[in-house]
Amino acid sequence: MKKAAQHSEPKPIKIELVSDPMYLCGARELVSCIAHRVGFGDMECSKIALALDEAMCNVIRHGYNKETDRPIWLTIYPQKPDADSFGGIEIIIEDEAKQINPEKIVGRDLEDIKPGGLGVHIMREVMDEVIFEKRESKGMRLRMSKSAPRPDEAPRIGQRSSSQTQAQRQVS
């Protein structure tokens, strides 16, 4: 998958959210809608939305200690198919939470069944690449990307499914 800085068209979308869980649904709908447009099927769109949800929940829960008025910046890079790839999606989530060593962000052992601690595992399971890093100024940045399926595995750009149309309506 190409690096974010090399994207030409379409332009990314960047929005600022507050760390209130009630807005998670809007972020999920947005990323699901865009994922549909770059060729992911219904199930994969739902999983990508889940990965985003888990990432934002981690920021709210662990980064901001459930404070509901802190900023979270969400940037989505839709990647159209070209000669080198089938396209895909890259999601960047940034915050102003306390910086931590990215190497210490790990999921729990799945054999140890207990409430909580599944978010990082889910993100890594759903997305092709998950990278935590410290922002230059303050806070943390999470980059997640996933390549779109082959054209014969899912509807492509311009092939609007009924669920895609529904997702777009929900966002608009």
């Binding site: 998670l24 739902s46 889940l50 888990e54 889910i122």
Partner: peptide
């Protein structure tokens, strides 16, 4: 839709 907070519950 359910996320990991639902699973934890």
């Amino acid at each position: 839709y359910m996320d990991s907070s639902g699973l934890a519950t």
